[in-house]
Design a protein around this nucleic acid. Structure first.
Lengths: 213, 213
DNA sequence: AACCAACCATACCGTACAGTCGGTATGCAA
DNA sequence: TTGCATACCGACTGTACGGTATGGTTGGTT
């Protein structure tokens, strides 16, 4: 074990390491079952340091949700699905991308804020709101492409781009729940196929228009 | 407070009262944050009684999931959505029914096993499997109608009745997550509208075929 | 050199936790 | 009546929890 905590830290400062430890632990077993002591141990930090950076465990939860929002925003902004020419292509590429990253251990696949908000929505408004901002903020990044696709294809149903953007997140969050319940990530991918099919139907794509694989 | 626990109990035996207390508490704040002491207090029962009926807190979790599966199965079996003549009508009526019961407090609307499995899927296989049985068992009750509707309408896409049945549960579970994140049950109803639309599109319903309201 | 604030460490506190244990009360059957 | 199983009670245990108090260390500023 390398000297854990000193100035000029070898792998991020204490705060960041705590946030990363929290991210992993909470995804694995939830917020309530994650103890401060354990986070300190994993992050190689002492209690004093923890409560220097976060005034309470709840504050850590809020910070973890915000950190999640920031890191995932950067991750998706850099993802390749924005490359396509047509806006609808980009939307479908997003769904395909979400599907493609569902591999490996379930805990490493699922959404931190979706997991956390299920437990704390009634007991911690602060964490709940931070989780909400993460989810709806991400949904908002899809709105432009969906709206452009609607205009592009002359679609005007009794639904909005905002609503469909949120629905994609519904399917993704629900997909994680079923994957956990069945202990099989394939269950999540299956629902993303339905989401892909729904979007194509909404936009009047014929079936054979679907790309290979 | 009526004499809580005696033989010839006035409102169910201790075990049932504990299961109901667990159902409410876990939906409100999750499994880990729910203490045995609190459940005993709410159920009007002592610790000794609790551990007489459940050998551990985890065993209570399993029993709570099973109890949930039984009570919800009875609830949906008695629901009016089975009445319609055509199988597709019944499927759509199911979705409409699920939407119609999303009213009031969020904690009273959401799914016990969906909430629980998010926290414990990695730490308690027993609870996870019990939650899985509840969810997938419920999904299975939709398969017959979906299958009949497919045959009825001569549908054969690259999806199965089983898969679509599961997808309905994905949307419902995800809908609860977004409703919690946004602290607004309307968000859940919104996604059920998308699910309704998806099913209609799959089965080639025209839009005006949609019933009023 | 002196100082400061951010940062980190250690020891500790009160409490709430899951689980245990010895015991009592009740119903039933031989 | 005895014997036994089920149901229930409540005090107790050890521990792990979130949080605090206090003091030391470090890098930058003046």
């Amino acid at each position: 074990m390398p000297r854990p905590t000193k100035r000029n830290p070898e792998r991020g400062d204490a705060r960041t390491r705590l946030l990363e430890a929290a991210r992993d632990a909470i995804r694995e077993k939830g917020f309530a079952a994650t103890s401060v002591d354990e986070l300190c141990l994993v992050a190689g930090v002492t209690k004093g340091s923890f409560f220097h950076h976060f005034k309470s465990k709840e504050a850590l939860g809020v910070a973890a949700a915000q950190h999640w929002a920031e890191t995932t925003a950067a991750f998706f902004a850099a993802a390749p699905y924005h490359a396509a020419e047509e806006p609808l292509e980009r939307v479908l590429a997003y769904v395909a991308f979400r599907k493609s990253i569902i591999t490996g251990e379930l805990a490493e696949v699922t959404c931190l804020v979706g997991t956390m908000v299920q437990e704390v929505f009634a007991t911690s408004p602060a964490i709940r709101d931070a989780c909400g901002e993460s989810i709806f903020g991400h949904a908002a990044t899809l709105e432009a492409d969906i709206g452009a696709a609607m205009q592009d294809r002359g679609i005007s149903g009794d639904w909005t781009a905002e609503s469909l953007a949120r629905h994609t997140q519904t399917v993704i969050q629900g997909a994680f729940v079923l994957a956990k319940a069945g202990n099989d990530p394939a269950l999540a991918r299956e629902s993303l196929d339905h989401l892909d099919r729904y979007i194509r139907l909404l936009f009047g794509c014929s079936n054979q228009e679907k790309r290979s694989r």
